[in-house]
Design a protein around this nucleic acid. Structure first.
Lengths: 360, 360
DNA sequence: GCAAAAATTTGAATCGATCCAACAAAGATG
DNA sequence: CATCTTTGTTGGATCGATTCAAATTTTTGC
């Protein structure tokens, strides 16, 4: 299509410049890294030589080995890379991480991979000073892989029960209580739960006996919170349908189909993510059910989009950006400590929740 | 808050393992990089030693220097890092880049910085095999900085006139013609242009004589396209108000105020980005002007959000993800050639454009 | 003009791996 | 049994810089 940019000569090294300028490589190095300590005349001579030979400046690859520090933090997930730019929760989190990185001039390296093997390799070979882990599905595998690197890392979103890993998350039990309490207080007594996954790779309706067996602590805690608040209002929690989704549109719709196939459909939906809640609103509206007239919907997360949907979503807001900022700071200011932080959540009442219909 | 994770002993090196296992460092290296060529018994012995000493596996820092290749591509901009997660255009582009990177297992390093000096440093020290440059404002500075690194790079979005830099973009003249033609054909004769910046750091209304002086080729080409199409319909292009914004909400609103302060306000707005077009729709609606009843609005870019606003935006769609994919491929398959690609655009007619009001 | 102090410069050591030519040992072949 | 393969292992060279103690030069003070 067009011309060659360069000959295929091997790139110029600092040593080449040093030789050309007639100084030692120590001095040549100083010209670039601490110019103030080298005599002006020499400095100019070396710079001129560099210019003349087309030297690209000290290669970070070489510098890195000596310095040890990369000045970049890795953000890893088991989802494809585009997850960081598509998912509203991830985006809000990345905004917080970005802010902390911008403040200190650190870079961000996105790490992911289609399959398990590649992911392992990518984590092993990522040039970073530490990792922030987006623990969605397969979070524990991700933690194991990362632990191998023996670099600082912090798990996000769901507290791991394992006390040896740093983690930043929210009080899921309290948040779920807030959500359920809000709906119960409005008068609702028939509920359904759209749940995040209980464990790797499963989905579908969940029997009451399974409910306490959720492996993912985040899922379990939210469930515990919901049930705890509802039972205080005398609701029989054993009778509440819980549908486990993969937090995507397809499985959420499937869940709704199942839930509303019932003879006594719920008047309120407790969704464990704003994503599912928004799908639910769309699904209900399309089915001719008014939100919140016929069915109230409450989400969890507090992503920015939730304020913009129609009707605007009532939800339990996490301080997402703040979690991101703290995670980044945990890596950037790593002090060898295991740091486990639990941040507070906030009930944000918007228009998707209201009293149950009179007829119910 | 909690216990120490590690003592402060210096990390284990491959050489330590080799010594402990009683083999040469060459063999120890092989155990990790080409296990199949080392005898099983030895392999197990080395692995056991590694396990026992808590070896984290070959350090990528060391490997990198030898290998030369980082297997990551840098994406740079003069905006803060959060730009990548906030801006819809950037996000769509990143999705394309992500896809190409996922396919080959390459990583993405985000590069940015608040000030000019830090940006230079971050570009100099980024551990990447090449750069994709988001050339918004200050694009030429970014190109200069990157050129210094003597790594492959490709400029995005706006073609640079400089033929020595690889670039991928769209045919802005053709796209702008499409937009203007569409509106003129609907019967509009009174237009206003919401323009992207002409050059670094300016904003405000533009006199007709300045119009052809735009420094940014993307801006200039779109203007040329608009005027070219309109003049074929006998519109006096010299009379069209052009307001230069910074492609943000504040300056776009300022532009609209100016434009609609006129005695003969336009019936159609040509916006050079979907962002500005969506701000315009909001502004017009809030002012009681119907879109497209009173004023038609057409955007440029084709970001996903444009389909969701109210009314859905008529726009000129760029193949954003495809541009991203090609940019990534250009770096990943770099062959020393300068590659300049111009992709086609497509008029997407939605509900924000219609015939001008009868009274006009 | 000379010693002491200050400012520069040098060059070997180091960072942590991979690569490869040379060598050693074991097995196959005539 | 000598020779040729094959298979596995070794250790020096290399990747491209930074660092620092020691050597050298320049400056300062008297």
């Amino acid at each position: 299509m067009a011309s060659y940019t360069e000959g295929n000569t091997r790139p110029i090294r600092l040593a080449d410049i040093a030789k050309a300028a007639g100084v030692s490589h120590g001095t040549a190095s100083n010209v670039f890294s601490r110019p103030e300590i080298v005599r002006e005349e020499v400095r100019e001579r070396v710079k001129a030589a560099a210019e003349a030979m087309g030297y690209a400046g000290p290669d970070p690859k070489g510098r890195l080995l000596r310095a040890g520090r990369v000045n970049a933090i890795g953000v890893a997930t088991t989802e494809p890379l585009s997850y960081f730019f598509d998912d509203p929760f991830a985006r809000a989190m990345m905004a917080g991480i970005s802010e902390a990185c911008d403040a200190t001039g650190a870079g961000i390296a996105l790490v992911s991979a289609g399959n398990q093997e590649k992911l392992a390799w990518n984590i092993q070979s990522a040039l970073v000073d530490g990792f922030i882990l987006f623990c969605i599905e397969g979070g524990s595998r991700l933690v194991e892989l990362t632990r191998e690197r023996k670099l600082p890392f912090v798990a996000l979103e769901l507290g791991f029960d394992d006390d040896t890993v740093s983690a930043i998350g929210v009080d899921n039990v309290a948040g779920a209580r807030l959500a359920a309490h809000h709906l119960a207080e409005l008068g609702h007594r028939r509920f359904a739960v759209l749940s995040l996954p209980f464990a790797d790779d499963r989905t579908g309706p969940v029997s009451p006996s399974q409910v306490r067996t959720a492996v993912y602590p985040g899922t379990r805690d939210r469930l515990v919170g919901y049930f705890d608040a509802l039972s205080r209002f005398g609701v029989d929690t054993a009778g509440i349908p819980v549908y486990e989704t993969e937090n995507d549109e397809a499985s959420t719709r499937a869940g709704l189909e199942t839930i509303f196939a019932s003879a006594e459909p719920p008047t309120a939906i407790l969704a464990m993510s704003d994503r599912m809640a928004m799908v639910a609103i769309e699904w209900l509206t399309a089915r001719g059910l008014a939100v919140p007239g016929d069915v109230s919907v409450i989400g969890f997360d507090g992503v920015p989009d939730a304020a913009l949907c129609d009707p605007p979503l009532t939800t339990v807001a996490q301080p997402i950006a703040e979690i991101g900022r703290r995670a980044a700071r945990t890596i950037l200011d790593f002090d060898g400590m295991v740091r486990r932080e639990t941040l507070g959540v906030e009930l944000v009442v918007r228009a998707s929740s209201g009293p149950p219909p009179k007829t119910a």
